[in-house]
């Protein structure tokens, strides 16, 4: 039997990030995608075509919402106007759940439009726990927070990323979106090991999984979502599915986006891993999983 998701969120199956280049295929052909993930901000502050599209998609597919501007970790006050818009959109599209990233996107009223990193220390953790609880109260639902891809490490960090995010999830009582490509990218960039990372993840809080491709720059990897998923990331995904017993999985593709058919075929590569994970039923490995460095 699979590890039960703490919030009772279902395994929605295999889904795709909804992208405008695929709108016509999705609306005209209604392909057999289990669910779609929308980028929250693409459908806020607009009353034009984007909301017309998302209303139609939501009428035929389950929707989950994934934001990039919650700015959860910022030192600035919460943006309550933004949260009100997020809440209204979630009701409009009947979002199964919604989330964002463990990061900050700007401070002092500015917005970098990037997922900027946070130090992993007690002060930042307490700040994030407090903010996550506040946001969940306002939205009246648990957040599903994603591990970011990061490119710097702070000297002041006192714990690993997985431990930090795991404690955040447990103490703020939120869900997790495990991005297995981000695990790979951050492990490559910081010299961590994916299996060690996974060992600290509270899998009962994992609600959703992201798979994606990245760009290997030689000295570091960048989370570009511009290529197929690499073999090692599939391995991490397989392990995550085995430990959860099956979680809703989204393929993200944001740059150099191929045709819908190619994107859909890439998503289908996840099916055997998901099926094997379901068969394993969320059992932890009997002995430590491989701990080879990812480089």
């Amino acid at each position: 039997m699979a590890i039960r998701n703490r919030f009772g969120f279902p395994d929605l199956g295999l889904g795709l990030g909804l992208r405008s280049v695929h709108y016509s295929t999705i609306l005209e052909q209604r392909p057999p995608v289990d669910f779609f993930e929308i980028l929250t901000e693409n459908y806020l502050d607009t009353e034009g075509r984007p909301v017309w599209i998302v209303d139609q998609v939501a009428a035929h597919y389950p929707i989950v919402m994934h934001g990039v501007s919650l700015n959860l970790g910022t030192a600035d006050p919460l943006d309550r106007a933004y949260l009100a818009k997020v809440k209204a959109l979630a009701e409009r599209v009947k979002a199964r759940w919604l989330g964002d990233h463990v990061c900050f996107t700007g401070v002092a009223g500015k917005n970098s439009h990037d997922l900027l990193p946070l130090p992993y220390d007690e002060t930042t953790l307490r700040h994030l726990i407090r903010r996550t609880k506040q946001v969940q109260e306002i939205l009246e639902r648990p957040l599903v927070l994603e591990n970011p891809s990061t490119y710097v490490t702070f000297k002041q960090s006192t714990m690993g990323e997985a431990e930090f995010i795991g404690r955040l999830a447990n103490e703020a009582d939120c869900g997790l979106l495990l991005d297995v490509n981000n695990i790979y990218v951050s492990c490559r960039n910081h010299g961590w090991e994916p299996d060690e990372y996974l060992a600290h993840v509270p899998f009962d809080r994992v609600t959703q999984i992201h798979i994606a491709g990245h760009t290997d720059k030689g000295t570091h990897c960048v989370d570009t979502h511009s290529k197929p998923v690499i073999e090692r990331v599939w391995e991490i995904y397989a392990e995550a599915e085995r430990r959860t017993g099956g979680r809703a999985t989204i393929l993200e593709w944001d740059d150099d986006i191929p045709s819908f058919e190619v994107t859909f075929a890439e998503l289908q590569k996840a099916a055997p891993f998901k099926n094997a994970g379901k068969a394993a039923g969320g059992r932890a490995p009997k002995r430590p999983a491989r701990s080879k460095a990812v480089a």
Binding site: T74, D76, F104, V107, L116, T123
Partner: peptide, 10 residues
């Protein structure tokens, strides 16, 4: 937010 969080982010 703690002053140290604010300072580092700025």
């Amino acid at each position: 937010a703690p002053a140290s969080v604010d300072a580092l982010q700025r």
